[in-house]
Design a binder for these strands. Structure first.
Lengths: 330, 330
DNA sequence: ATGAAAGCGCTAACAA
DNA sequence: TTGTTAGCGCTTTCAT
C-alpha cells in the first residue's frame, strides 16, 4: 500500500480511503489510485486489515470428534453438511475455516474464540461437550450448534427432531409386524442418545409380544458397524429388525446381514437415520429417517448472522420425516 | 497479553517468549506466566501473530466453478474430496479455508494470493483457468492443482490418468460387444476433455462395425444430465452403451434409461467415472473408472508442503482403475 | 480533501 | 535473562 501511495504521490491514508471507495477522496484521484492498484495487482492484505478492524470475515466450523470412536471427517453425513455450509457461507461473502477437534481437550472452544480467528462459530454435533458449550454460551454469543435440544440448554442449537424421528422409525417397524427390534449404534452424545432412548420407550409401549430393547454397540464407522453386526448375528439371537443410529451403519448392517445369508427385508428389516444420498440407491434401498440438511444449514447460518449482530436467538428443531423404502416396507 | 504482563510484573516481550516456550525465560517465571495465562483464559491472538510472522497457518482450498454450468459444491465427488482435504490439512495442524469462485473473474487467484489469507493454495479442478494458473505459477510456488496434466504446463497438478481410464472404459464396452457407444457430459475443462478425446480415439480404433463417436452434451449435474439423456433417448437413435463423464451423471443416465423403459445393462450398458461412494450401491451397481481420491489428496498435501518449503515439485498422475459392476458386465 | 500520527496485538533484533 | 524498541500493513481520528 505504501508502494501505491508513492506511485500516486499521496499518503497511504488517502490510498486506504480511495480503495475503500470513500467519498472523502476526490473522485478523479480515487479513480487514479484504483487504477494504479489494479495495474500493479495490489490487493489489501486482509490479515492486517482484520487486525485493525478486529474482525475476520471468517466463520469457523468445528467438528468435535471423540478420538477413535466417532465418525471420521469423511463420513457422508458430515461431508454433505460441509458442502452445504461452504455454499451458504461463501454466498454471504464470508470465508469458512474448518477445524477438527479431537477430544478430550475441553479448552478447544475458548481457545478458538480467544484466538480471534473467526467472527462466528458453527459446531457440528455436541458430542460429549454439552458442559463446555453451556459455560461458553454465557459470554460468547455468535455460536450455533448442530445437535439435539437438551432441557436447560443455554446455547443455540439447530437440529432434527430425534425423538420424533426415532419414534416414527420404531412404530413403522412395529406396524409391519416386527417384534424383535435391535438398536445398532453408540448412544454417546445427545443426538444418538435421544434416538436410543426413544427407541426403548417406544418398544416398551409396543403391542404384546414386543421384544425387549437391545443395544448392539457399534462405533459410527462403516467397518466397526459391520463387525459389530456380524458378531451379533453369529451369537445366534433371534431378531427381525434393526434400527440403526445412522445410515452409514445401517448400510453396513445390511452388508453384514447379506454376508450371514439373511435376507433384507424378508428375514430382517433395516431402518437407518439421516437419509444420506446413498440411501435411495442401495440394494435394497434403505428405509430411513430424513434430516433436511440443506434447510438445517440455512437455518444455522441465518441464526449465526443474527447472533453476530447481537441478537439472542432461540433453538430450532426441524421435523424428521420417515422415508419408507425397500429395506423396511410396510 | 499486556494484561498478563502486568499481572506477572514483567514486560510483554517476556510474556511472548514465555508463552512460546522460549528457553531464554527463566523456568520458574515461564511457568508462572503460563499459569496466569491459563487461569485468565488468555490465548494468543492469531491475527496479530500472523500479521507479525507473515504466515497464517491456513491453506486455502479453491473450487473454481463456471457459473450455472458446473457442478455445485455439494456434488458428491467434490464433497468427498473436501472431506479428505479437511482430514489431511487439519492433521498437519493447519486450518483449511474454503472458497468457491464463480468464474469468470480471472483475478481470483492473484487476489487470493495477494490478500495473504493462506500459506498455500489447493485448486480443485482447472476448469477453464489453465492460462490463469500458468501465469501465476511463474511467481507463486505454494500452489497445487487437482486436475489433468496438460503438455507444457508450468504448475503442479495431481490427478488421475484420464486417458488411461477412459480407454479402459471404452475398451471394456467394446470387448463386451457394444458398438454404439455414446459419451454423456460436457468436455469443457481439461479433465473431461481428456476423457472425451480418448473416448473418440478409442472408438476410431475400434473393431469393424463400431459406431461413430457421439456426444450427448450435458452439464455435470444430476438433473441436467437426466434431462439431456431423456431428450436423446426420445430422438430415437439406436445405441447400446453410454460412457458418462462422471458417476453423478451416469446415475442420472440410468434413471433416464429406466424411465424410458430401457434395461441396464441388457439394452444399454453404462460406465461412469470417479467411483463415488454411491456407485457400488446403485441398482444395478455402476461400472466405473475409479479415482483414488484419498491417495490423491494425500499426495497434493505432501507436495504443497514441499512447495511451501521452497521446493519445486513435479506433477503426479495416478493410475485409474476400471471397476466392473453390473451396469456394464463383461 | 488530504496528511500526520496513533495503534490493532504481536514478535524479534538489539541493548543492557 | 530481561527490557526497549521497531514494525508487520492497515484504518481512522484528529488536525490542517
Amino acid at each position: 500500500m505504501a508502494d501505491i501511495a508513492r506511485l500516486a504521490g499521496v499518503h497511504v491514508s488517502t490510498v486506504s480511503r480511495a480503495l475503500a471507495g470513500s467519498p472523502l477522496v476526490e473522485a478523479g484521484k480515487r479513480e487514479q489510485i484504483m487504477r494504479i492498484a489494479r495495474e500493479r495487482g495490489y490487493v489489501v492484505n486482509s490479515v492486517a486489515r482484520n487486525l485493525r478492524l478486529k474482525r475476520t470475515q471468517t466463520l469457523s466450523v468445528v467438528v468435535p470428534l471423540q478420538h477413535e470412536r466417532g465418525q471420521p471427517l469423511t463420513d457422508p453425513f458430515f461431508v454433505a453438511m460441509l458442502g452445504y455450509l461452504a455454499e451458504a457461507i461463501t454466498q454471504r461473502g464470508y470465508g469458512m475455516a474448518l477445524q477438527k477437534v479431537v477430544l478430550p481437550t475441553h479448552e478447544w472452544l475458548t481457545t478458538l474464540i480467544a484466538s480471534g480467528r473467526a467472527d462466528g462459530i458453527i459446531v457440528i454435533g455436541q458430542s460429549t461437550e454439552h458442559e463446555t458449550l453451556q459455560s461458553v454460551a454465557q459470554t460468547y454469543l455468535p455460536l450455533v450448534v448442530w445437535g439435539g435440544h437438551i432441557p436447560g440448554q443455554r446455547y443455540c442449537t439447530v437440529g432434527t427432531d430425534n425423538p420424533g424421528g426415532a419414534r416414527a422409525a420404531v412404530q413403522h417397524l412395529l406396524k409391519s409386524a416386527r417384534r424383535r427390534i435391535m438398536f445398532l449404534g453408540d448412544p454417546t452424545g445427545p443426538e444418538l442418545r435421544q434416538r436410543y432412548d426413544t427407541y426403548r420407550r417406544t418398544l416398551e409401549e409396543g403391542p404384546r409380544g414386543t421384544g425387549k430393547p437391545r443395544l448392539i454397540p457399534a462405533h459410527l464407522t462403516a467397518d466397526a458397524a459391520y463387525e459389530a453386526m456380524l458378531g451379533f448375528i453369529r451369537k445366534g439371537e433371534r431378531f427381525d429388525a434393526v434400527f440403526a443410529a445412522s445410515d452409514v451403519i445401517a448400510i453396513s448392517a445390511m452388508r453384514a446381514l447379506a454376508t450371514a445369508g439373511l435376507s433384507v427385508p424378508k428375514d430382517v428389516a433395516v431402518v437407518g437415520f439421516d437419509d444420506i444420498a446413498i440411501a435411495a440407491h442401495t440394494t435394497p434401498s434403505l428405509t430411513t429417517v430424513r434430516q433436511d440438511l440443506e434447510r438445517g444449514v440455512r437455518t444455522m447460518i441465518d441464526l449465526l448472522f443474527k447472533r453476530m449482530d447481537g441478537e439472542e436467538t432461540p433453538s430450532v428443531t426441524m421435523p424428521a420425516e420417515l422415508i419408507v423404502r425397500e429395506s423396511a416396507p410396510l
